[in-house]
Design a protein around this nucleic acid. Structure first.
Lengths: 156, 156
DNA sequence: CATAATTTAGCATGATCCACTACATGATAT
DNA sequence: ATATCATGTAGTGGATCATGCTAAATTATG
């Protein structure tokens, strides 16, 4: 996808504006980056085609959906063979509660962020799903109090 | 902001489509949720006004911007008084490298995700910025290998 | 149970805005 | 000097959103 990754300052400014407002029109975008609309939209299409911009999304308040609780879960597998990891990851991808998942160095753990409606749902997820995934050895969970900074990605 | 949080199934479907494509037009959105455009756009405006939809953003590939490395940083303060926390959080908000930050339970730590171009930038951030923040007692960092699942929020 | 009130959907209209194309200009590199 | 690339302008066709009005459905009330 991402090939011609030679971004100049105008591209960066385009990306910055797009992360501020993903629905901005090409005309407004052009005004903000100090170019006319034509080259701006051409640049944007190229950024999209090259995968630098992989999509657009609405920022939705998880709390309003009822998912007022997040939990960070650290998972350790009992064996670190590829097959077990692949199966674990495949299982994770099917769980809508798991918002984010990283394969970590060190103890070869996974770090997950889970969004649930409350402790009850979290308990159910733990007992009925997570611990039942093959080769999951141990699970450690930490509950955050508050989100101090919520970024999608490092801003351009 | 979020007041009248009575979301019916159509609202949920609207949110689901908007998280899949934040630039979808009202007409297309209407077709997908099985309504005509007028009520759909009225619902969407209400979701925006109530804060359920707080904005729109482009999904930008951090790697393409050069931020190919993430680091999870766990910070412990030497004292948990409000003033120290406020100052720490204020400092965090000014650091563009810090993408995400949570105040955690337990050891009253902060968990941060940091996006940097590489170890060199991370070292500089650590030494020149993070440890110099008042009342930071200890810092522990873990480096992820790969992002298995990258969600913005739990999908509606 | 019936009727009124409120809410919500649907349709049509109009004005605006948008993206795309073609062509000309200017800069840069070969 | 030629080729290449990026920008700007202009024009056009299409699409988009907001609005006003009506019908229908849902809810509240007597």
């Amino acid at each position: 996808m991402a090939e011609n990754t030679s971004l100049d300052e105008i591209d960066i400014r385009i990306l910055r504006e797009l992360s501020r407002d993903g629905r901005i029109s090409a005309a407004d975008l052009a005004q903000r980056v100090g170019l006319s609309a034509t080259p701006v939209i051409r640049r944007l299409r190229r950024l999209e085609d090259s995968g630098v911009v992989s999509g657009y999304t609405a920022l939705i308040d998880e709390t309003a959906l009822g998912y007022s609780m997040s939990v960070f879960v650290s998972v350790k597998l009992d064996r670190q063979v590829d097959g077990a990891m692949r199966r674990f990851e495949a299982a994770i991808l099917t769980l809508p509660e798991v918002v984010d998942c990283w394969l970590m160095t060190g103890n070869r753990d996974y770090l997950l962020r889970i969004a649930v409606t409350g402790l009850k749902e979290f308990e159910a997820l733990m007992i009925e799903r997570l611990v039942k995934i093959e080769s999951v050895a141990s699970i450690e969970s930490s509950i955050p109090i508050r989100r101090v900074k919520s970024g999608i990605a490092r801003s351009p």
